[in-house]
Amino acid sequence: MKLSFMLSEIASGLRRNLSMVVSVILVTFVSLTFVGSAALLQAQVGKMKGYWYDKVQVAIYLCSPSPETTHCTAGTDGNYLAATEEQTKGIEAVLNSAELKPYIESWEYESVQDAYKNFQEQYGNRSMAESVKPEQLPASFRVKLVDPEKYDVINERFSSLPGVDTVLDQRQYLNTVFGVINTASLVAVIIAVVMLVCAVLLVATTIRLSAFTRRRETGIMRLVGASKSVIQTPFVLEGVLAAAIGAVLASGVLWAVLQFVVQDRLAQQNLSMAFIDPSEMLWVGPGLLLLGILLAWGSSLLTLRRYLKV
């Protein structure tokens, strides 16, 4: 069949069913926007993980007289005892041991004085900073891991050593943030699935209606010996075209959000955080287009098998 003839058939089909076609476009648009949002949220989580995991460390806090200490032995006066020189050396030895070599990228010691200095730098302008004395702050080892996920190895090895108060994985602060984002993308996925079911059913209904309004043409096509593909292709393309338009709209909206909301506002206001940029749409956009086309194609073929006798 000639392309121009096929195109004019599709155009006439779209015209006859205009309101249905518009609703297919809108439903695919909304559903694919949710699918795309979920993908972008996941990309954002990935980006933040990469950014923060480079910076986060495992902190091994040593015993100190601070009242927040939990796992240290108390002295005769009721105060906790600070870690001794000897204990500190012991921990250092373990950090340098061959056993932990594969896990540790680097480590540094933060003495009580360093801790005090950092604390003052961070909170110096607040009144509480004045009441904190150096000896209340714990000294610590800051350990950077080769693989941040291997925190448990460090925790197991160090938490029971004498002089160690707690082993803290700074990732746990981030995990709360990631948890929120993951929940958001899960919600987006659920809404997307519901909307996609709507889109598939709507495509099926539209194709059915279209096949009904054009049953004269298809009847004549059958009688003069048009092949199955010639009869069906205009219908399939009609659904696919509507879904593709919806996907393009969804990609456009997501791109606009990335460009004008994330890039121009969020990223400007939170310079210390990493954000995804509009270039993510280079893979999300084609993905949405492909998904929309596949769904419309599958759903219209199934419908035609039932409602268009060939």
Partner: peptide
């Protein structure tokens, strides 16, 4: 290989005479 004619003609109302006849050729390429 078979032509068919019916009592009720079965023409496509929006197409001209030429287009109605041409339709049978278009759809088989």
């Amino acid at each position: 290989n078979i032509g068919v004619v019916f009592q009720d003609f079965r023409l496509l109302p929006q197409k001209t005479v030429f287009a109605n006849v041409a339709f049978a050729m278009q759809v088989i390429g």
